[in-house]
C-alpha cells in the first residue's frame, strides 16, 4: 500500500494542507512534516499488512 521511504511528507504537507484550510509558516510546515513522518514510520506495519477484501471496517454505527 505504501513505500514509506518514497513518501515525501514535506511535499505532501505543502500540497494538501492548504486544501484542508490549514496555513502555517515554513518553520511550522517542517514540524508538521516531521510529525507526519513519525505517523508514517509508526503506521508502516499497518499500511503494509494485507486485509481481506471482505473485511469490514470496525467503527460502531447503529442506525
Amino acid at each position: 500500500m505504501i513505500d514509506i521511504h518514497r513518501f515525501d511528507t514535506a511535499a505532501y504537507v505543502a500540497a494538501v494542507a492548504p486544501a484542508m484550510g490549514l496555513r502555517f509558516s515554513p518553520e511550522r510546515a517542517q514540524a508538521v512534516s516531521d510529525a507526519l513522518a513519525l505517523v508514517v514510520r509508526v503506521a508502516a506495519p499497518a499500511l503494509t499488512h494485507p486485509v481481506p477484501t471482505e473485511a469490514e471496517p470496525a467503527p460502531v454505527f447503529t442506525p
Binding site: A17, M20, S33
Partner: peptide, 17 residues
C-alpha cells in the same frame, strides 16, 4: 495538524485491520 492530513484510504485500512 499532521493527523488531519492522513489519507482516508489509510484510515479505512486501519479500521479493517
Amino acid at each position: 495538524r499532521a493527523g488531519a492530513l492522513i489519507p482516508a484510504a489509510w484510515v479505512v485500512h486501519a479500521q479493517k485491520l
